[in-house]
Simulated assay, not measured.
Amino acid sequence: MKVLAVTGYKPMEINIFKHDDERTNIVKAAIEKRLIAFIEDGLEWVLISGKMGVELWTGEAALELREQYGLKLAVIPPFENQEERWPEPIQQAYQQLTMAADFFRPLYKGSYSGPYQYQANNKWLIDKSAGCLMLLDEEFPGSNRYFYNEAKQAPGDYPIYLITPADLEDMAEEMRMTEPEYWD
């Protein structure tokens, strides 16, 4: 698979309310681990729409992997200025990400004009990718359910890979085990 779409929860859907919350490191580490496995199997591009939360953290992880692995990042928001109502630190992170991305272009010109923009963006990401990676708890899908349902209806064999809450717990434990105090 050369192109992978990645999405997941907005931060408030997983009780993260600050951009620098330490729990984001666990999410980013889990995403990075999965991306490296995909890279080793031929992944070249990561596609995101740049929504706050998992997608921004994925973008940051992809940029960190770019130097070592040559991974490329495309940010395709549903419309221009999607970040204009976000908290200032998240707006800054988004703007830095879009400037550093290998490709950036909003799907629609102009600002938000209706939910059809999100629907079209989900379809576009699925059409342009060979599979997707999602941070998702199937019991509590949140806003992810729209992308997830669209991906399940994709024609052909469109693989949906999940990072689950259990995967995040495993990653947190892995990270704890790397701390010297853990073994004392």
Score class of each variant (00 low, 15 high):
F104Q: 05
T98R: 12
W57A: 13
E169N: 10
Q119K: 14
N81P: 03
D184W: 11
P106A: 01
E138G: 12
D20F: 11
K2H: 12
Y9T: 00
D21V: 05
T164R: 12
K2A: 15
Y116G: 06
L125Q: 10
V6K: 01
L107V: 04
Q68C: 03
K28E: 04
A93H: 08
P77W: 02
A62Q: 06
A37S: 11
K28Q: 10
M171T: 08
P106R: 01
P155Q: 11
N144I: 09
A172V: 02
A93E: 04
P87Q: 14
F140M: 02
K28P: 00
K123P: 02
C132D: 08
Q92A: 15
R34Q: 03
E13A: 06
P11K: 09
A93N: 14
E150W: 10
L47N: 12
G59T: 07
D102I: 01
G156C: 13
R145W: 13
E138R: 09
P11E: 09
M99D: 08
I90G: 01
I90W: 15
P165C: 06
Q95V: 14
I31L: 01
E173F: 15
I26W: 04
I39H: 07
Y148F: 11
M175K: 13
E32T: 10
Q92L: 15
K72E: 10
P165G: 07
Q153G: 05
G110I: 01
P77E: 01
E150H: 03
Y9Q: 02
Q117M: 08
P159M: 07
R145Q: 15
L168S: 12
H19Y: 07
Y94N: 13
N149D: 15
F38P: 00
P106N: 05
M177H: 04
I48V: 14
L35C: 04
